[in-house]
Computed example of a mutant assay.
Amino acid sequence: MFHLLDKAKNYVAEKFANVPKPEASVTNVAFTCVSLEGAEYLAKVSVKNPYSTPIPISEIDYSLKSNLWEIASGTIPDPGSLKANNTTMVDVPVKVPHNVLISLAKDIGADWDIDYQIDITLIIDLPVLGNFTIPLSHKGEFKLPTL
């Protein structure tokens, strides 16, 4: 009996290993505006859904770092769903407080830009399989305007 259950478990694991899964990539991170609370950035994430039905995104976690120092982080609960058999652009807004930007003055003074790394985790609710996590990381720099 144990041998039969082991075979069944291996069969199911093998079938699920070959199931196509959603894929994602960060396409752009851009400065959007300055408000009284701080600077706002927008990360655009392209997510491809290989299934013929829409799939809900449970949540998005993000962390924005500069010189390995976390300057902003957060969670976006229930941001929507992915279109069936299509690529969906998901917006991840990030707010950075002014006091954090001031502390980055050393990096800004050297080359008039802010080097950054954004880590984004998409948690997608796949039917039957359960939650599927897609970790993303993107590095770049924000060029600051000159006078």
Results as ranks from 00 to 15, higher is better:
Val47Gly: 00
Lys48Thr: 14
Lys48His: 14
Asn49Arg: 11
Pro50Ile: 14
Pro50Tyr: 15
Pro50Glu: 15
Tyr51Asn: 02
Tyr51Met: 05
Ser52Asp: 15
Ser52Pro: 06
Ser52Trp: 12
Ser52Thr: 11
Thr53Tyr: 10
Thr53Cys: 03
Thr53Gly: 02
Thr53Gln: 05
Thr53Lys: 03
Pro54Leu: 02
Pro54Glu: 06
Ile55Ser: 05
Ile55Pro: 01
Ile55Phe: 03
Pro56Lys: 06
Pro56Ala: 00
Pro56Thr: 02
Ile57Cys: 04
Ile57Met: 01
Ile57Thr: 02
Glu59Pro: 04
Glu59Leu: 11
Glu59Arg: 14
Ile60Trp: 07
Ile60Pro: 07
Asp61Trp: 01
Asp61Gly: 07
Asp61Val: 07
Asp61Glu: 11
Tyr62Ala: 13
Ser63Thr: 00
Ser63Met: 09
Leu64Val: 04
Lys65Gln: 13
Lys65Asp: 10
Ser66Gln: 08
Ser66Glu: 06
Ser66Arg: 01
Asn67Thr: 11
Asn67Met: 13
Asn67Pro: 03
Asn67Phe: 05
Leu68Lys: 14
Trp69His: 10
Trp69Phe: 04
Trp69Tyr: 03
Ile71Ala: 01
Ile71Tyr: 01
Ile71Trp: 01
Ile71Met: 07
Ala72Lys: 03
Ala72Leu: 03
Ser73Arg: 10
Ser73Leu: 01
Gly74Arg: 09
Thr75Arg: 15
Thr75Lys: 15
Thr75Gly: 06
Thr75Tyr: 06
Ile76Cys: 10
Pro77Ala: 08
Pro77Met: 03
Asp78Lys: 10
Asp78Tyr: 07
Pro79Gln: 10
Gly80Met: 04
Leu82His: 06
Leu82Lys: 03
Leu82Thr: 01
Leu82Trp: 01
Lys83Asp: 15
Ala84Glu: 11
Ala84Ser: 13
Asn85Leu: 15
Asn86Ile: 09
Asn86Lys: 15
Asn86Thr: 12
Thr87Asn: 12
Thr87Ile: 15
Thr88Arg: 08
Thr88Trp: 02
Met89Asn: 13
Met89Trp: 02
Met89Cys: 10
Val90Phe: 09
Val90Glu: 09
Asp91Gln: 12
Pro93Thr: 10
Pro93Asn: 08
Pro93Leu: 07
Pro93Arg: 07
Val94Thr: 11
Lys95Trp: 08
Lys95Val: 15
Val96Met: 12
Val96Glu: 11
Val96Asn: 12
His98Glu: 09
His98Ser: 12
Asn99Lys: 13
Val100Thr: 11
Val100Trp: 04
Val100Lys: 12
Leu101Phe: 03
Leu101Met: 10
Leu101Ile: 11
Leu101Ala: 03
Leu101Gly: 09
Ile102Phe: 01
Ile102Arg: 09
Ile102Cys: 06
Ser103Val: 05
Ser103Cys: 08
Leu104Val: 06
Leu104Gly: 02
Leu104Met: 08
Leu104Ser: 06
Ala105Trp: 13
Ala105Lys: 10
Ala105Gly: 01
Lys106Gly: 00
Ile108Cys: 06
Ile108Asn: 04
Gly109Phe: 11
Gly109Pro: 05
Ala110Ile: 14
Ala110Phe: 12
Asp111Met: 05
Asp111Phe: 05
Asp111Lys: 12
Asp111Cys: 05
